[in-house]
């Protein structure tokens, strides 16, 4: 706002707000940006595969079939969705803390982004080992 008015008063061409097309940005981004877009992708994946998860729930609840008796593809898909959930969970907590203005400085934000990535991998493996 203040930039554009300053530009107009001094007669120079206005510094117009740059339109960033999110679809054309590469993945060569700072870690917090990667964590942010992965949060969106994992959320979209969870939404898209929600019917699959409800099928699994129905199967376990009524046939009492365990996750161990699943086929390889279903197991891998479940593991990927487990990671998506755990990742969305960890990154979501980070965003809640950022909303509370906790850890907004650059170094802290980079560190917490790394922690989110590491913690979600470790938690996924722990839960995966426990379930299978």
């Amino acid at each position: 706002m203040s930039q554009s008015t300053a530009g107009a008063s001094s007669g120079k061409p206005k510094a117009r707000p740059k339109y960033l097309d999110l679809r054309q940005l590469s993945m060569d981004q700072p870690i917090p940006a990667v964590v942010s877009i992965m949060h969106r992708i994992s959320g979209a994946a969870l939404f898209l595969f929600l019917p699959f998860l409800l099928c699994m729930l129905e199967r376990e609840a009524f046939i009492a079939a365990t996750a161990a008796s699943l086929g390889v593809i279903a197991k891998l898909l479940l593991l990927a969705l487990l990671f998506a959930y755990v990742y969305h969970f960890c990154a979501g907590i980070r965003f809640l803390l950022l909303d509370k203005h906790i850890g907004v400085e650059r170094e802290a934000a980079r560190l917490s982004a790394k922690i989110v990535l590491g913690a979600s991998v470790v938690l996924t493996l722990l839960i995966g080992v426990k379930v299978w």
Partner: peptide, 13 residues
């Protein structure tokens, strides 16, 4: 939660 999330995605893309 999913409604708000997917709505935001549709609004963006």
């Amino acid at each position: 939660h999913a409604w708000i999330g997917v709505r935001d995605i549709f609004m963006d893309y």
